[in-house]
């Protein structure tokens, strides 16, 4: 009797777990254009998909822009929480079997699966965002779209140091992964380049495989409050959707915030906190995706790694809001030094 009740309780707990697992669901899963376009694009997102307010969304923007300009039929698929490489491989394989060409995979998690599928479908063009590793680095039909996040982060670090009155700044990372550590390394280097003895407080919201740190404003707010209480007055939020919490905390305490991935000053969802956002480190996944589609459309596909950095505007600092107009000359000076190679920005902490 009691045992049975234990089962029922467990079932309810389980339903809760499933409901939570379903929370990451996007509101716009598959979107297949009706027109029989020339290009049939398959786009595979990482967890979160379209609507994640972060880099998946950025890729989606690139696709949308391409849709406006070229005749394209696109299908968008997304990864689920806790899936295996086999499922990712299956997703890419089904796209390839379904006649999609080119196929774009967003996120380093697709590296292994993409390498395998690309070998089996030599006539299909593939692109992978954020990865250039053995397995994807030598395929004649694979384009790697990678970014020099540390360079853009360096510049916003310079901005933070120049704007800080307390010589103490903060860095809030979404999830503690090598990718976000790249942001941290560049940012810290930028701060120290201006003020060598400045304090950089670093906090990551979650540890993998818990990726909620990219989408938990409450955690961002708590972390930011801790830093502000410890004298920081500028905080760089490299934390996707959690950034809004960081900005809210900054607004309350009259401090400043720095956005990430897109020009967050102009995001409608951040309208009420935008006056604290002095700049953003823009990582143009949309530009990379658009360029790739354009290259396939124009028959100028190029395999191998394309690094988007300061020199081509793939990463840059945003000036919307005019909060950093006064220090723009210094920022431009650092930017030129990085482009010319005079300053080499570290990519690991």
């Amino acid at each position: 009797m009691r045992r049975k009740r234990g089962g029922a309780l467990a079932a309810i707990a389980m339903a809760g777990v499933l409901a939570l697992a379903g929370c990451g669901a996007s509101d716009d899963g598959g979107d297949s254009g009706g027109a029989s376009g020339e290009l049939k694009i398959g786009l595979a997102y990482d967890i979160g998909g379209r609507g994640d307010q972060s880099f998946n969304d950025s890729a989606a923007r690139g696709l949308d822009k391409a849709k406006d300009e070229f005749s394209i039929e696109a299908t968008e698929l997304e990864a689920s929480q806790g899936e295996t490489d086999a499922q990712k491989e299956d997703r890419l394989r089904q796209l390839a079997e379904g006649g999609y060409n080119p196929i774009i995979a967003v996120g380093f998690a697709y590296a292994g699966p993409l390498g395998k599928v690309a070998t089996d479908f030599p006539e299909v063009k593939f692109a992978i965002v954020d990865d250039f590793t053995p397995g994807t680095d030598d395929g004649p039909n694979i384009a790697n779209l990678t970014f020099a996040e540390e360079q853009g982060s360096f510049l916003v670090g310079v901005a933070a140091a120049l704007k800080s009155k307390t010589d103490s700044v903060g860095f809030v990372g979404g999830v503690n992964t090598p990718l976000i550590q790249k942001f941290e390394a560049g940012y810290t280097a930028g701060v120290k380049a201006v003020t060598p003895d400045a304090t950089v407080q670093v906090k990551y919201l979650t540890q993998p495989p818990d990726y909620s740190g990219f989408n938990d404003p409450a955690k961002g707010e708590t972390a930011a409050n801790g830093m502000l209480d410890a004298d920081a007055d500028v905080i760089y939020a490299a934390a996707g959707g959690s950034g809004s919490g960081v900005f809210r905390a900054a607004k309350e305490k009259g401090a400043m915030g720095i956005g990430v991935d897109s020009d967050q000053y102009n995001l409608p969802s951040l309208n009420d906190v935008k006056d604290v956002i002095i700049t953003s480190m823009v990582k143009s996944v949309d530009l990379a995706v658009y360029d790739f589609i354009k290259s396939v459309d124009g028959d100028s596909f190029k395999a191998g790694n394309t690094v988007y950095d300061l020199s081509d505007g793939g990463v840059q600092y945003a000036t919307s809001g005019g909060k950093i107009e006064d220090i723009k000359p210094q920022l431009e000076e650092y930017k030129q030094k990085i482009i010319s190679g005079e300053i080499e920005v570290p990519s690991t902490t």
């Binding site: 669901a25 899963g29 598959g30 297949s32 299908t75 698929l77 997304e78 089904q94 796209l95």
Partner: peptide
């Protein structure tokens, strides 16, 4: 679930 996504049905 992948095939559902492909045919436009939310795989959730």
């Amino acid at each position: 679930s992948n095939v559902l996504d492909l045919s436009g049905v939310p795989k959730e």
